[in-house]
């Protein structure tokens, strides 16, 4: 297992290199001229050209890529074109708010998702199942900007329980994490339900019941553990998506996170920031996939690498 982890960790490097080339090309190929956007709406032609030279955008793309990569290898992510601050600072400022929002969203999404999934699977075709799946479908179908604004209207404006946005205290986590977690909870519930229903038909479950184990033990201990593999895969993916910061939820709740930074820097064509963020997301995804693989081994000792 240890060797496997080390091997996979080294495998990250070539993957990230390829990602860096793709990201670099993709970012530079979006139409739009950062020099003009940086120089501002009332800048003259000369100003724009001056800015272009300053940003190094007048050089060939290959040169620009190598300048960027040599900086990257020395731990320098570059400077934001928009704010002239180091990209590292821009991202560091926003990483933790997005990270904690992701954690809280995932925590409640996993708890509720599992609960609904298990209840639906065990009470198949009963009212509990219908209610559970109805909630799940709503969770997937409600657009998060709508849900977010409705929660703000209800709990902030009408009831005054929670702030409308920002991340000044623990109360400000509640509404955004509900909004962000709703879709995830729904996905987890549906996966848990279908996976658990399959497992409950297995022979060893019948054996367990036959030898007189309590139904709760059968479901929660023996069945659920084996039903978890697809759920863990799915949850890992969702976790990766959320870590990238949700543009919609962060915008609605004025959350100072990575999603808002991304949309801001894309509309501003702030190349260094977009590149750094996309590389970070790629890295997070790879890392999460690795953790998921390790979790497989823990849940099912038959899986060995």
């Amino acid at each position: 297992m240890f060797r496997f982890i080390v091997k996979r960790l080294f495998g990250i490097i070539p993957t990230l290199l390829i990602v860096s080339i793709l990201v670099f090309l993709f970012v530079h190929m979006i139409p739009g001229d950062p020099a003009r956007l940086v120089a501002g709406p009332d800048a003259s032609y000369e100003d724009v050209e001056l800015v272009r030279q300053d940003l190094g955008l007048d050089k060939p793309l290959v040169t620009q890529y190598f300048t960027y990569m040599s900086g990257l290898f020395q731990g320098d992510l570059g400077t934001s074109m928009k704010t002239k601050r180091p990209v590292f600072d821009e991202i560091a400022d926003r990483f933790m708010p997005t990270f904690w929002l992701t954690i809280w969203s995932m925590v409640w999404a996993i708890i509720f998702g599992l609960l609904i999934g298990v209840i639906s699977a065990t009470k198949r075709n009963k009212w509990q199942d219908y209610t559970g799946m109805f909630t799940a479908v709503s969770g997937i179908s409600l657009p998060s900007f709508w849900l977010g604004l409705m929660l703000i209207q209800l709990f902030s404006v009408q009831l005054g329980w929670f702030p409308t946005g920002g991340n000044d205290s623990w109360t400000s986590y509640i509404l955004p994490s509900i909004t962000l977690g709703a879709g995830v909870a729904a996905v987890i519930a549906r996966f848990t339900r279908s996976s658990l229903m399959d497992i409950l038909r297995e022979d060893y479950i019948r054996t367990g019941r036959a030898k007189g184990l309590k139904e709760n033990i059968v479901v929660w201990k023996h069945a659920l553990k084996n039903a978890m593999i697809p759920v863990v895969t799915m949850t890992g993916l969702q976790f990766g998506f959320l870590l990238g910061g949700s543009i919609v939820v962060e915008t609605v709740f004025s959350w100072p996170g990575l999603g808002r930074l991304l949309i801001d820097s894309v509309s501003y064509r702030d190349y260094p920031v977009i590149q750094a963020e996309l590389l970070l997301f790629a890295f997070e995804f790879i890392l999460i996939n690795l953790i998921v693989d390790v979790l497989y081994g823990i849940m099912n000792p038959q899986i060995r690498y």
Partner: peptide, 18 residues
Amino acid sequence: IKPVPENGSRIAMLQTGE
């Protein structure tokens, strides 16, 4: 001074007095 990009959220902040 607080940037709040979403129109609806900005209005909600004014409604609540935030």
